[in-house]
Design a protein around this nucleic acid. Sequence first.
DNA 1: TACACTTCTATTGTATACAAAATCACCCCG
DNA 2: CGGGGTGATTTTGTATACAATAGAAGTGTA
Lengths: 216, 216
Amino acid sequence: MMPASETAYQKIRAFILQGEAIPGMQLTEEKLSEISGVSRTSVRDAVRRLENEMLVVRSASKRLFVADWSDGEVDEMFTLRGMLEAHAAARAAQRIDGDALNILRGINKELKDAVNQSPPDITCFLEANRRFHDLILECAQSPRLTKLMPALVEQPVVRRTAHQYSKIQLNQSAVDHDELIAAFAAKDADWAKSVMTSHIRRAFHSFSATAAPESP
Amino acid sequence: MMPASETAYQKIRAFILQGEAIPGMQLTEEKLSEISGVSRTSVRDAVRRLENEMLVVRSASKRLFVADWSDGEVDEMFTLRGMLEAHAAARAAQRIDGDALNILRGINKELKDAVNQSPPDITCFLEANRRFHDLILECAQSPRLTKLMPALVEQPVVRRTAHQYSKIQLNQSAVDHDELIAAFAAKDADWAKSVMTSHIRRAFHSFSATAAPESP
DNA sequence: TACACTTCTATTGTATACAAAATCACCCCG
DNA sequence: CGGGGTGATTTTGTATACAATAGAAGTGTA
């Protein structure tokens, strides 16, 4: 049996990420306790985690709301994520072993398969992509970095627009990953860092182009 | 009246930071509740925060311990902090206004005064230093960055060794700050970034030299 | 109508009690 | 004497009840 606070965390998180929640809407602890089916005590525990990931925010008077992000904040988030993931990639390049490398190859194979479906299986793609980046983070062996990352990865906006990415854009991700794997195999930290930087940066621009296609 | 969870947070934090706690020692929620004088409920709340700042860690079986850091982790922490604070400085350079600049000057004045006491007033120095960096972070106007920072700043080890810094080392901090202010005044993001990078990096080396002076 | 004041309601904060889980100490059996 | 299991003890997890606080709605007065 899963701990109640974990249940609450997952349910509330899904509630926000799968778009049932509207950015800016208030979330009372009681409502959340109904949604997740556990007591307020556990809900509060879950909410603390979500607050750290900045999926929910607190008003001055401690009331809870679903987070919403300005363009500037999304930009900044990608920038920070780029810096930290690039750093993680550099560390991973110096520490990764053959086993992890092979698992990485396997995950990227799955990712490619998901892309090559017709239409591409975005859910599968996102899942494989997440596992790929998570494993790199693990190989970086930096507890601190691991702690910071969650506040920078999940975003409802990004998740939603992912479904509109073209096959070409998705494929570019797979290609980036292949090059990352090559950099890891060569144990070249600088190479890994550069590739990761471009990878995240490109993802950002794919996102902005998709999210706001109507420019003046 | 301060909220109980806040009381608990401050008391426990002080307990760890002022060296009453030994790295690696177990902290039961009940003990912490005695220390802080509030109920376990509020203690748990406080512990969550401390966990995020990585001042306490949780074993696989959810038991709590005072964090202790390997040399590698301290190194990594300074590296991450350097990246993020440099980024904050760059953003601040583009956003800072005259008022903030003057406050910054005032804070650095206080810092210099603390250094020039005989002996230097380290507590005052650390306090002014913290306010200086906090204000820069605020000027950077990045909620995300603000959220990440606390996990990278406070460290019992660093705090303890600070008391052994020489006047020359302390003075160098003031000089760095002056140059940062100059970079801000010129609204030169690159300059600010470089100075901040050096500043943090130097602090790291001052620390390692002080913490482990006996090399082979 | 505008504004202060007051009451009521919604929401979060805290304590306590009990349940579940993990660790420890002990004992029994091989 | 060692290993494995069993019960006791410590420690964390969860629910509920109540307290405190913030926000909303009304009420009266100028």
